[in-house]
Design a protein around this nucleic acid. Sequence first.
DNA 1: TCAAGTATACTTGTATACAAGTATTATAAT
DNA 2: ATTATAATACTTGTATACAAGTATACTTGA
Lengths: 243, 243
Amino acid sequence: MTELKELLYPEKWLSKASAGDRVAYELRMRIIAGMIESGTVLSENKLAAEFAVSRSPIREALKILASENIIRLERMGAVVVGLTEKEYAEIYDVRILIETFVFERLVRKNTNELVMELNKTLEMMKIAIKYQDADEFSYQDVLFHETIIRSINHSYILMIWDNLKPVMESLILLSMRSRFLEKFEDFKRIIDNHQIYIDAIETKDRDLMVKSLHQNFDDVQEKVEDLWRSQQLLTKGVEPQND
Amino acid sequence: MTELKELLYPEKWLSKASAGDRVAYELRMRIIAGMIESGTVLSENKLAAEFAVSRSPIREALKILASENIIRLERMGAVVVGLTEKEYAEIYDVRILIETFVFERLVRKNTNELVMELNKTLEMMKIAIKYQDADEFSYQDVLFHETIIRSINHSYILMIWDNLKPVMESLILLSMRSRFLEKFEDFKRIIDNHQIYIDAIETKDRDLMVKSLHQNFDDVQEKVEDLWRSQQLLTKGVEPQND
DNA sequence: TCAAGTATACTTGTATACAAGTATTATAAT
DNA sequence: ATTATAATACTTGTATACAAGTATACTTGA
């Protein structure tokens, strides 16, 4: 059985996580990065051997990934679904959907506290760029959006975010890591765009918000499409499976 | 330990379900019906004894309910959150959100097949009323909306529905059961309203759709608020807990 | 009486064992 | 050679055991 070599997911983010969560985080990264091909059938026993844990945490991890639509639990084995262009577009849809919903709530609220919090996070992002820390940058980027979503105190919108967040986080991590190597100049634009988002919230300017929201997603999307294209080369023979 | 007396969730819907799923379905019904008060701390061991199964399926059930926001998994014990007026409004929000999204997709598609399917389901609902079968009526009602949502083939919108559906199903079941006893005349209006929904899809009339959608939710909401009021009397001392 | 420490009865997370079911492969009969 | 049947090597779901951690109650000391 293959030993667990290198972790894609930042280890320091897992300090308090259970074995099941660790496996879920790591498997998710591998699937989204294309290291595990679409269509692969995962066996609980094999995974348990590979990750050197028992079946209990593996089952937990598979349940989590299934709820995120990354794998499909079938009678025999968990089938990797992965993210095709279709899924990227769908994630995009849902993000637009919930963030515009949140914005509609925000325009009727006092956003001073939120704006302060977002400014803080934005400063953190700048520091992360300065020290070329892609993981820290990704963390703050995800936190930025989560802060906005949490601010309206809507448990069912938060539920949607909770389901989407792990996949988003993985996408952003992979996107930012490669960008720090290849397209470092992108980050100025990303920072600017987040500033526009803050301004939109502060001035309650819907149009500005939508503009920056789309730009923001395109920033991740663009890189992600590259990612997907390179995946496609690896997995060109695999049949896309739909229900 | 208390033996499992009477099941709130229809047994025949559980034919293929695992023990964990059964427990989840039943616990969900009890929580939503107010039989288990908000704030109650559930113990895995006690539940295992009560449902006469081991801790494994209980853990599975608690994970499911936590992902639906019905309970909160804490360090010691699972705390019942339940549904207050706030949560009802939030569920309503999300339903409006996803069904309007779905409708926007539908206006650009051929909906002949869907409309036929919906007509079939509507006929089923009429039969269920004729034979005063509240559970069957609820089943078809939930199916009606699920059919619409599935029709656009959007896995991430479906993901949201999958998370919302069990709670919706429970709400509708409870609502319809009491209505069959008390307000039988409501059903004509409900049927009419579903017909309007179908017409809206057929003619791709946005305004008609929104109108019927809101009416449809109000139909459940109304009864549900009664339910909540009666719950409130039972649990008036319990502090509502928010994070 | 009250504070501090200790014992105990919980809790969760993980490992392991087993039963029941399902594919796959091998064997036997035509 | 092909089909039917039986053996096997998987699979999942559930029960149980155990370790480590946490709250509660109890005891001991002043």
